Amino acid sequence: MHEHRKDGAELIFLPDGCAIPNNPRLPVLLHRGAVTPGDPAAAEALFRQHGWRPAWRNGIFDWHHYHSNAHEALAIVDGAVRVQLGGEAGVQLDLAAGDVLVLPAGTGHRNLGAEGALLVVGAYPQGSAPPDQLHGAPEEGERARHAIAATADPTQDPVTGGAYPIG
């Protein structure tokens, strides 16, 4: 289900994907055109300003994975990418340089194909645990669902600085 906030950000609610749990309470946020294309330092500064710790510059893995103990912000700085969220039956989104995706703990994501030299800046809320990396194996399920429920909500939207997810 897709909704929009007053500021235009999309809220994407994902159901439990069985192997990929997703988040039962918090939506994915999609901010289109939120960062300056080609400027990873500006994306990192924006995240830092709103209480998110830039942690890496790279791409997005091409296999389903999720973090059960941390929320993640992904700024597409260069290139374009089609991502799948929520597991095998999940939604597909086309993202371009400038877009920011905010994934609540438990949200499955993978790269379905990129155009150009894809560069993504990843960030996590200040004070969050180092993110685990899970793949949807059956033995992960119960522990992952407990970790998702125990992960504190972000205090701020990494793009606007407003309350997450309301904005």
Rank of each mutant, 00 (worst) to 15 (best):
V77E: 03
A114Q: 11
Q84M: 11
R82Q: 07
L93S: 08
R25T: 11
P40E: 12
D157M: 12
L95N: 08
A117R: 15
N23D: 10
E10H: 04
V83P: 00
V77Y: 02
G98N: 08
T107H: 03
I20K: 11
D132P: 02
N23Q: 09
A42F: 06
W56K: 15
A80P: 07
L29A: 01
G113T: 06
G162P: 08
E3V: 13
V77P: 05
C18N: 15
I60R: 15
G79L: 05
G162L: 13
L112P: 02
I148A: 04
Q84C: 13
P24C: 10
W52P: 05
Q156N: 13
E44L: 12
G106Q: 03
P125R: 03
L30S: 02
P125K: 06
P138Y: 02
L101S: 02
A70M: 04
R48Y: 01
A96I: 13
L118H: 12
E142S: 13
Q84Y: 04
L46K: 08
V35Q: 00
L74K: 08
G167D: 13
R82E: 05
V120P: 02
D153C: 11
I148C: 00
Q156G: 06
Q133F: 14
P158Q: 07
V83Y: 04
R32S: 04
A147P: 01
D16F: 07
A73Y: 02
L85T: 08
R145E: 01
D62L: 14
V35G: 01
H135T: 12
V81L: 09
A163N: 14
A105N: 06
V83C: 02
M1Y: 11
P131W: 07
S128D: 09
A152L: 09
I60D: 03
T36L: 13
G162H: 11
G161Q: 06
A152F: 00
A19L: 14
A117Q: 14
A105P: 04
V91R: 15
R143Y: 03
A123G: 00
L101W: 00
